[in-house]
Nucleic acid binder design. Structure first.
Length: 328
DNA sequence: CACTTGACCTGTCCGC
DNA sequence: TGCGGACAGGTCAAGT
């Protein structure tokens, strides 16, 4: 899924695009995408307007005027894509020069077709779109606003969900109670990080930074990227990693997350932002999905291994496992 | 308790 | 070209 930078990018897009709009209508076709639909979700949503869009960890929170919030987890393949209805029709019916009064940022490109290499290496221009026409068969929920613009929740793998709950209850859901500090907040100091991660002394460092209760928002991409940056082998046990390297790792995590936000996130398969566009971080990735390519630091060929049950990219020269302690 | 593994789903890619 | 298996950005529950 979208990790922290991707969810943050979607959040920023939605803040610009949907705040102030009123929900006129909703459709949802997959009960698990909307697990609390046992009560009449529609009647709670229709007529509500969008007050704010927030993020906590990898969770999106859309606050409504009614005191309720939509809480959304995109998991692996979720997307939130905003489309002006008019514009889809326009782009189908008219040619390029007829789009005058429509803000160009909203235009959904259907002229780009990306081959799998582009997608694998994130080589496409950040403005490239993976969305051709919506709804498509991954569309699970459609929010229609009073101006007839649409917000699509798409999720190919159906792991994601949307929940409706009173805003005041959001901090009480299990995930929110357990989740660790936001890495981009000033309170997330190296000391805080080291203190928390050392409680996971016996697991691998990669499993530890993927653990959302240690810190919020790191997933497989930025775990690999930050461990490479800090010259730490992902399979190192936490207790084997020297303090100086943990400190460097803290710096690298903050660095890669910020860099990725600046690049609009990572698109390796199907992540897109709120305007249906790809992120370009993977063009700058140092190890992630770069197996069999040279390490940008030492030119050693990057290997793909398995750590914490996840595909893991590592430079065998820059990231060395600590020597096994010799038993006496 | 700490830690690891499998399940949840669909789609794609790779090797036979 | 078809088919089986492995794998894909996350998180839980159930296992050791």
């Amino acid at each position: 899924m979208p990790e922290l930078p991707e969810v943050e990018t979607v959040k920023r897009g939605l803040l610009k695009l949907i705040v102030g709009k009123t929900i006129k209508f909703i459709e949802h076709d997959w009960p698990k995408s909307f697990p609390n639909s046992e009560f009449d979700v529609t009647s709670f949503l229709v007529g509500a307007s969008i007050k704010n869009v927030r993020r906590r960890a990898k969770v999106l929170i859309i606050d409504l005027s009614t005191g309720y919030s939509l809480v959304i987890h995109l998991k692996m393949t979720g997307q939130m894509v905003y489309v002006k209805r008019k514009q889809i029709e326009d782009s189908r019916l008219k040619n390029e020069d007829a789009v005058d009064e429509i803000d160009p940022q909203f235009s959904i490109s259907n002229s780009q077709s990306l081959n799998s290499e582009d997608i694998r290496f994130g080589a496409g221009h950040p403005n490239d779109s993976l969305i051709k026409e919506l709804p498509d068969k991954s569309t699970r929920v459609i929010f229609v606003f009073n101006d007839d613009s649409h917000l699509y929740f798409n999720d190919q793998r159906k792991f994601g969900w949307v929940r409706l709950m009173p805003t005041i209850e959001v901090p009480n859901i299990d995930f929110m109670k357990k989740v660790g500090p936001e890495p981009l907040e000033p309170e997330f100091t190296a000391e805080v990080f080291i203190n928390r991660i050392q409680k996971r002394a016996n697991t691998t460092i990669k499993a530890a930074i993927l653990d959302q209760t240690v810190l919020a928002g790191v997933g497989n991409i930025y775990a690999d990227e930050s461990l490479w940056g800090a010259n730490i082998h992902p399979a190192s046990r936490v207790f084997d990693v020297p303090l100086a390297k943990l400190k460097k790792l803290h710096f690298e995590i903050v660095f890669v997350l910020n860099l990725s936000i600046n690049k609009g996130g990572s698109t390796s398969r199907n992540y897109v932002n709120a305007e249906g566009k790809r992120g370009s971080y993977l063009e700058f990735a140092r190890v992630f999905r770069r197996e069999n390519l040279p390490c940008p630091r030492c030119a050693t060929i990057i290997k793909k291994i398995r750590v914490a049950g996840r595909g893991t990219h590592v430079c065998p020269k820059c990231q060395v496992l600590p020597k096994k302690l010799v038993n006496i």
